[in-house]
Structures are given as C-alpha cells and as structure tokens.
Simulated assay, not measured.
Amino acid sequence: MTALRGATRLALLLAAVAVGSFALVVNSPVDPVAAYVGADVAALGPAQRALIAQRWGLDDPAPERFLAWLGNLVRGDFGFSATFNRPVLEVIGDKFLASLALMALAWLLSGVLGFALGLVAGARQGRLSDRAITWWCYTLASAPAFWVGLLLLYAFAVSLNWAPVCCAVPIGVPAAEVTPLDRLHHLVLPALTLSVVGIAPVVLHTRRAVVETMAADHVTFARAQGERGLGLVVHRVARNAAAPALLLQFGSLGELFGGSVLAEQVFSYPGLGAATTAAALGQDVPLLLGIVLFTAVLVFAGNAVGDRLHAALDPRAALADGRGRS
C-alpha cells in the first residue's frame, strides 16, 4: 500500500511538473527559431523560417505539441535535442555523469561540515564559537551561489593561481591522459561553491536540535553522573540531532541542482546544470523537459530516503507519521 501511494504521488508530481514546465517554455519570450539558427537568423526569409518551424513542429498548437511529446514519452522516446544534436537520454546520461562528482562532493561537504559545526554551535550555546558559527551561516544563507563562486574564482584561481579558472579537465589534454588528480583539481572550487547552498540550513537545524536535546531529561541525568564535553555530545546528543539533519540533507537535492546551474556557469563546468541553461536559452523543449523530469525523480527519491532515515533514527517521527495517515 505504501509503495502504491508513493508511485501515485510520483506520477502526479511528474504530470504537474511536465505541464507546468511546458507551459513556461512555450510562453517564453525567446524566439525558438532565432535560438536554433543563432546569429544568421537575420538572413532567413519567411519561407526558410516556416520550414524550420515545420521541421521542429513549432507551428503546431501548444496542446498538440505537448500531447505528441507525451505520446512519445509513454513509448520510451524522450525526443531529440537540437542543441546537442543527440537523443535527449544520451545527453542527460553524459551530462549527469559529469555533474555527479560535483554534486556528490558538494553534498558530502555541506552535510558533514554542516552537521559538525551544528554540533559545536549547539553544545556551546551562547558562547563566542556559537555566535561566530551562527553569524557565518546567516551570511552564507544570504549569499548567492554565483557571487560566492566569483569570489572564490578571483581569490584562488586569478590572484593565487592555486586552482584552474574553468572546465572539468585541463584544456587541450586528451581524455586518455587526464588523471583523477587533474579532475579533482578542477572540481574543488565548484564543489566549495555548491556546498554553500546547503551548509547553512544544516548547521542551523542541527544547532536547534542539539540545544533542545541538551535540555532533555536524559542528558541532565547523564550530566549528573559526570558525563561532560565531547563524550556527552557524541553519546547522548548526536543521534537525536542527526535525524533532522539527514532529513534536510536528502530533501535539499532540488536546491543542490538549482545551485549547480549557477556554479557550472561560473566555472564553465560541462554538466547537467550547464545543459539546462543551454536548453532554456535555445528553447530546446525535449531536452529541457527531460532534465526537469529527471530532476523531479531525483528529488522525490531523495525525500523518500530522507524520510526513511529520519524514521529509523527517530522512531517518534514514524509513529507521528503513522497516526497522521490513519
């Protein structure tokens, strides 16, 4: 029953996302013919423009275009990307593999560092370290990812020359000669930029959970028996604080992908975020809808995993959820 409910929710989510995304794209002020042709659009005559529109089905009514795309999707055909001149599934697969290392590293950095700093801030509530971490998090939460990326790029790539300016691999080096160290060298700055998207909420939620747990009766009893410092936080507090942090971390995949669009543009990183921008600017409807659906499934799966882990770490959440559904 739970699996059926989850499948129904996913189907409804994908339907709403597909309809909403298609409506936004077809009502965009960008001329799809001009986006496809590029700088030579001024040389096009009415007949040539009409042929291009007919070739891509742009002269059909929007409902017919959507139903045609939906019919192909049901048969497993996601369409063809005019931007990359390849099938949509191939583009998504290649670009996602390029973005996977970036998003995974940023996700781990924001989760591990955010949880550790949240534990420190909550355990030392009201002290200088708590105020410094909290101020730092509020600053990060209000800073746009692209602005942070530009600052890091200027500081470490332009001024100090410690990191490359762009791309996922060294320019001009054959793919067979690119080492894992080269890829990691190009990955550090984009991953640091992207981790800013998720670190502040994890710190602040973890801090609040730690403060609440430190005031609980079992922690007071442990203190009365002589437990102090790191041992008290690790054995009595960390488990309760980990539940909301994990739920938030797995639920932030959508924000992580949104941040990757900006980060990949700043660092010219050829991943799924850059492909999304190219599809939107080029009115590449099949590719854009394919990326949107893929991202929706990814976010839904992340939320589902986060709910399961939250229930495993905090049984009270599972009981409350069960009562709410009954």
Rank of each mutant, 00 (worst) to 15 (best):
S260T: 14
A274I: 11
L248V: 10
V233D: 00
A279S: 08
A279D: 03
F267D: 06
G254S: 00
Q249D: 00
L253C: 02
G259D: 13
A238R: 01
A275I: 10
V237P: 00
A224N: 07
R239A: 01
A238Q: 02
V219F: 09
L253V: 08
V219K: 08
A216K: 04
L248P: 08
A224S: 15
F250V: 04
A224V: 13
V266N: 07
T276D: 08
A242E: 02
R228V: 14
T220V: 14
E255R: 12
A224R: 12
E227Q: 10
A241D: 01
H218P: 04
E227P: 05
S260Q: 08
V219G: 01
A274N: 11
V237E: 05
T220H: 14
L262Q: 12
A241M: 03
A263S: 15
E264D: 13
L247E: 10
R239L: 13
A242N: 00
P270Q: 05
S260R: 08
H235W: 15
A224L: 15
L230Q: 10
A275Q: 04
L256E: 06
G251V: 01
G271P: 10
H235G: 06
R236F: 06
R236G: 00
V237M: 06
A216T: 09
N240I: 02
Q249S: 14
A243M: 13
L248I: 15
P244A: 05
A216G: 14
F221A: 15
S260V: 14
G226Q: 08
Q249E: 12
A263D: 11
A280M: 14
S252G: 11
R236W: 12
T276L: 15
G229W: 02
S252T: 00
R228F: 12
R236E: 09
A280T: 07
Q225W: 12
A238Y: 00
E264T: 08
S260H: 08
A216E: 13
L256M: 15
A275L: 07
L232E: 00
A242P: 02
L253N: 01
A224C: 09
G259T: 10
A222S: 06
V261Q: 14
P244S: 12
H218W: 09
G254Y: 04
H218Q: 09
S260Y: 04
R239V: 01
H235F: 03
H235E: 03
A279Q: 07
G254C: 02
Q225T: 11
V237G: 03
L232C: 06
G251W: 07
Q249V: 01
A245L: 06
A216W: 08
A241N: 03
G229Q: 00
A275V: 06
T277Y: 15
S252M: 07
G254I: 01
E264L: 13
G258V: 02
G229Y: 01
G229V: 01
A216Y: 04
Q265N: 13
G226W: 09
G258N: 05
S252Q: 06
L253G: 03
E255V: 05
H235N: 08
A222D: 05
G271W: 11
A241C: 06
V237D: 03
V237R: 00
R223H: 09
R236Q: 10
G259L: 10
A275G: 11
T220K: 13
G251K: 08
L230P: 04
G271E: 05
